[in-house]
Design a protein around this nucleic acid. Sequence first.
DNA 1: CCGAATCCTTCTGGATACTG
DNA 2: CAGTATCCAGAAGGATTCGG
Lengths: 122, 122
Amino acid sequence: MRLSSSWEGDAFDPECPTRIVLDRVGDKWTVLIIGILDEGPKRFSEIRLAIGGITPKVLTSTLRSLVADGLVTREVFAEVPPRVEYELTDLGRSLQEPVAALRRWAELNVAAISDNRSRVAR
Amino acid sequence: MRLSSSWEGDAFDPECPTRIVLDRVGDKWTVLIIGILDEGPKRFSEIRLAIGGITPKVLTSTLRSLVADGLVTREVFAEVPPRVEYELTDLGRSLQEPVAALRRWAELNVAAISDNRSRVAR
DNA sequence: CCGAATCCTTCTGGATACTG
DNA sequence: CAGTATCCAGAAGGATTCGG
């Protein structure tokens, strides 16, 4: 399995695993949410409060897509008042590792990027 | 330095290092381009051909932002015909590591995600 | 309490044609 | 060869309001 080399003629591929994961993880809320859920199961409102500034519609749709991807489970408790808990799956938990690697790189190097950005003033 | 816990009340922060890097790396062409440049310096047309399907405008703007972030250098040679070479900086090269980690995770787990997606049919 | 429905804005990226 | 210039479509995300 070759990872580098032989890019010649390759086109953009929306089915590429890396692309799928980048789309998944690159969206505005995913990393934040799975970071919160890493503490343990959380209710809708807890997540919403923990993030602060996310509208219910956006939180709902993000959670739905996370569930659809198998990264999060959604459990409804038949109670009054209703309670819904979201929890990371093993798959979702395993995603934390590469994300943490990116986070570490970010914290080490984002200063350099920001410096360049302000200097160049694109 | 605590990474987890204490999310309480935290809001979405566009200045968060992780967010900046996710925005940088999550865009449509960045990972593809730095993957190509990992082989060595490349000319505009080489990159364009290697990717296939990117318009010059988009390639230009992506390369410009990569240069602005200090991940890539742009060198103009005063020749006829004109030649411009793009090359990874050390910073750009160092980014390959966390990206590779994400790529590995993707290749291991994207099947599971795709399975779930097709099953759930969101 | 946990969303759904609707409407709207913004932003990325693309099509096409042209230039130093 | 290496871009620019215009114009534009689609999707993500947000504001607000309403429902089970």
